[in-house]
Every structure is written in structure tokens, then in C-alpha cells.
């Protein structure tokens, strides 16, 4: 039997997309379905899971309220802290710096983002730990300074880890800014400061939104930074999940928390996309 050209084309298309579709289905859709099922189950007496249909786990989320409170406060605070440092730097890179040096300086921002988060967080563990900055302070007479395992240390780690991700989208939106608008504003007698607040800042808001949304979303699932710099005292949802799955072996409650985390992430994503649409023309950003 001879295949029609159309049937042949369909088969080629299916062969091209098939592997990706199967992979996504088996290792993303199916697993998500599995934790959905587990989240309405019960904890088996010896740990693990036993089938049931109950919303007890969701009612019991309050047992891990501290993790939710820490995550939902430190993630936005961290994102804002990143923004406060990132905006001036992005502005400097896009507007002030010599264009010949721009490429190098932007690359220097990108590179840390793609290097091991574990190693970069370790560097602060090293610096803030007893043999790091506190030890140096002791040498000049300031004693008993404790830096590591505090909320401040976690916040510092967050800013350090996610700053590059905040700088990039803001830089892109500022770089695309039409310079003639700035000239026109100046020609019409506006002071630099009012040009900034009336033109530059509003036009860079899509980049700011993208950066804040990206950083917040990634922070919601953070594990390493609170683990290494918070020392079990400042823990996030991610840390609670590791505990529930690998130590206390309460898989149903862990699944309920994981499902809730995904819902929160999707909600943050949808809200920020909604806001981004308000601004004219969202821009694509390059992460590399």
C-alpha cells in the first residue's frame, strides 16, 4: 500500500515530536499526577503512603506553617532586594557604560548565574562561618559576632544567587529604550531626574516585572540557600519537603505541600503575566 504524501508528512511529524511528547508525559505529567493522588492519601503506619481519599493532608498544611511563612516573606523580600541593586547596575550597563566594554561587563553578570549555585552558596557559608568574617573581626577586637544561620545570612545568599537573573531582563528593557525619547525630553526642558521618572522608568517596567517574577518563582522552590546559610533555623518549603520525603517519610503530607507549592508558583506566574500584559509589548529575554 502506497502512503499518500499527507499521511507520510503526518508520520514524519509524529516521529519528530513523539520522543519529546513521551518524555514529557512519562516524566512530568505522570509524576505530577502521582503526587496529586498521594496528596489525598494517608500516611502508612510505617511511613510512606497508603491509598485513601481525604483532604486531611491539605487541612494539615498548618503543621508546616513556618516554612510557608518564611518562603512567602523571604522570597518577595529577596526579589525586591535584588531589584534595588540590579536596577542601578542594569541602568549603568545599558545607558552609561562605553559600548565597547558593554559586552564584557554583561558577560561578567551572566557567567555567575550559570555556575554551580551550590559552590556559590558555599562561598558565603565559608565567609560567614566562624572561621571567616567573624574570625577576622575577632582579630581586630570585635568578638562573638554570629552571622551564619540567621535570616540575614539567607537573605544575603538569595541576593548573591539571584542578582544576575534580575539584572539581565532589566538591562534588556533599558537597552532597547529609544534614545530619541530621552533627547526629546531633554530638549523640551525636562531635568534628567524627571526624564528618568517619566520616561526611562515606565518603559523599563516590563523588564522589572520579568525579573521580579522570575526571581520570586525560583525562590519559592529554593532549598540550598536556606539549608546551608540558615542552618535548619530558617527553612523554606523546599526544606520541609526534603524532611517529609527523606526523613520523616510522610509522603502524603509532603505531596500535599508540593501540590500547594506548584499552585502558588502558577498563581504568581499568572498574576505577573497579567500585570506584564498591561504594559505595552512584553519583551523576550535572553538568559545566555
Amino acid at each position: 500500500m502506497e502512503l499518500t504524501p499527507k499521511a507520510k508528512k503526518t508520520m514524519v511529524t509524529a516521529a519528530l515530536i513523539g520522543p519529546a511528547a513521551i518524555w514529557l508525559f512519562v516524566f512530568m505529567v505522570l509524576p505530577f499526577f502521582a503526587i496529586l493522588v498521594f496528596s489525598v492519601g494517608e500516611r502508612a503506619p510505617a511511613g510512606g503512603y497508603q491509598p485513601a481519599f481525604t483532604f486531611d493532608q491539605f487541612a494539615n498544611l498548618g503543621a508546616r506553617a513556618a516554612a510557608f511563612v518564611n518562603t512567602l516573606t523571604l522570597a518577595p523580600i529577596g526579589a525586591i532586594a535584588c531589584l534595588l541593586i540590579a536596577y542601578p547596575l542594569a541602568y549603568y550597563l545599558a545607558v552609561k557604560v562605553d559600548p565597547r566594554r558593554r559586552l564584557l561587563l554583561v558577560s561578567l553578570v551572566v557567567v555567575p548565574f550559570w555556575t554551580s549555585m551550590l559552590v556559590r552558596t558555599y562561598s558565603w557559608m565559608y565567609l560567614l562561618g566562624a572561621r571567616g568574617i567573624p574570625h577576622v573581626l575577632e582579630l581586630i577586637g570585635i568578638e562573638n559576632v554570629r552571622l551564619i544561620n540567621t535570616p540575614g545570612a539567607v537573605l544575603l545568599g538569595i541576593v548573591y544567587g539571584y542578582l544576575p537573573l534580575m539584572i539581565l531582563p532589566i538591562f534588556v528593557s533599558l537597552e532597547k529604550l529609544d534614545r530619541r525619547l530621552l533627547e526629546a525630553s531633554a530638549d523640551l526642558g525636562a531635568k534628567p531626574i524627571s526624564t528618568f521618572f517619566n520616561i526611562t522608568l515606565p518603559l523599563s517596567l516590563p523588564g522589572v516585572m520579568t525579573g521580579v517574577a522570575l526571581v520570586t518563582i525560583l525562590l519559592l522552590g529554593e532549598y540550598l540557600i536556606p539549608q546551608l546559610l540558615g542552618g535548619g533555623k530558617v527553612f523554606f518549603i523546599g526544606n520541609a519537603l526534603v524532611d517529609l520525603f527523606l526523613q520523616s517519610r510522610n509522603w502524603p503530607l509532603g505531596s500535599a505541600i508540593a501540590v500547594t507549592l506548584v499552585i502558588v508558583v502558577v498563581a504568581v506566574l499568572l498574576i505577573s503575566m497579567r500585570i506584564a500584559w498591561r504594559f505595552a509589548g512584553t519583551r523576550q529575554i535572553d538568559l545566555v
Binding site: P31, I35, G238, G254, L261, V262
Partner: peptide, 9 residues
């Protein structure tokens, strides 16, 4: 989707 959720699921 956070890495921790990918790992767990």
C-alpha cells in the same frame, strides 16, 4: 516547576 517538586514527583 521547582526542581524540588520535579525530584519528589
Amino acid at each position: 516547576v521547582p526542581g524540588v517538586v520535579i525530584g519528589i514527583s
